[in-house]
């Protein structure tokens, strides 16, 4: 399964995300921000973390208007899966593909630490459905990661057990109505290897490929 990993100037986690895709059984291919279309045969998309365009203007704001994002939107409209991680989540919100916005953390500083997530919506394949885990341990690392929005009008997928960022209703990740576009602030690609302390991130990459971890 071909998975496009989008790369903007300032993307940082594209290689880790590609590694996680490959480990899950997918074939990662780089999608360059300036290209008008996703690579041929793209079946799923990852928008990885980083500081696209140096967070200038607002995190994700400039990247959301880049050429490749128009094709990401078409891919999402067709029902294709899109996983946005950290800056990728910010890009998807800025692009209008996900509800809400990401604000500066309540601590007004960068926060890098392991967090426990509870899976609020277990009806999708993203986390392995009802047979999947109830909780995930994954690191979070961002400066502007506090989700702000109306949880009643968003499909909340993941919540922090103990929110270090100051998000509305502890929201860590949301999906679109169709459930095929998921954005989250924590970094599942940093939790796919026992050497790194957790393999819980594998569920999300398996979900991206439409299978169980």
């Amino acid at each position: 399964m071909t998975v496009a990993v989008v790369r903007f100037p300032g993307s940082l986690d594209h290689e880790s995300a590609a590694r996680a895709v490959r480990q899950a059984g997918g074939e990662p291919v780089e999608a360059w921000h300036a290209d008008a279309s996703l690579p041929p045969d793209t079946e799923a998309v990852v928008i990885p973390g980083g500081f696209s365009y140096g967070d200038h203007l607002r995190p994700g704001a400039i990247a959301s208007r880049s050429a490749v994002m128009a094709d990401v939107a078409r891919h999402a409209e067709r029902g294709g899966r899109v996983l946005g991680i950290c800056n990728g989540f910010q890009v998807l919100c800025e692009a209008g593909l996900l509800p809400g916005a990401l604000r500066t953390n309540a601590a007004l500083s960068f926060v890098c630490r392991q967090v426990e997530l509870e899976i609020s919506d277990r009806s999708t394949q993203w986390t392995g459905g009802e047979r999947g885990p109830e909780r995930l341990s994954i690191p979070v690392k961002n400066h502007d990661g506090a989700w702000f929005g109306d949880p009643d009008r968003a499909r909340v997928m993941l919540r922090y057990v103990d929110d270090p960022l100051g998000s509305t209703d502890r929201v860590a990740g949301v999906a679109n109505d169709g459930g095929n576009v998921l954005g989250l602030m924590p970094h599942p690609e940093e939790a796919c290897d026992p050497l790194l302390g957790s393999t819980d991130g594998r569920h999300l990459f398996a979900g991206l490929l439409g299978r169980a971890a």
Partner: peptide
């Protein structure tokens, strides 16, 4: 905790 000490996995 203010530094990204994980990037690169």
């Amino acid at each position: 905790q203010r530094y990204d000490h994980l990037v690169g996995a």
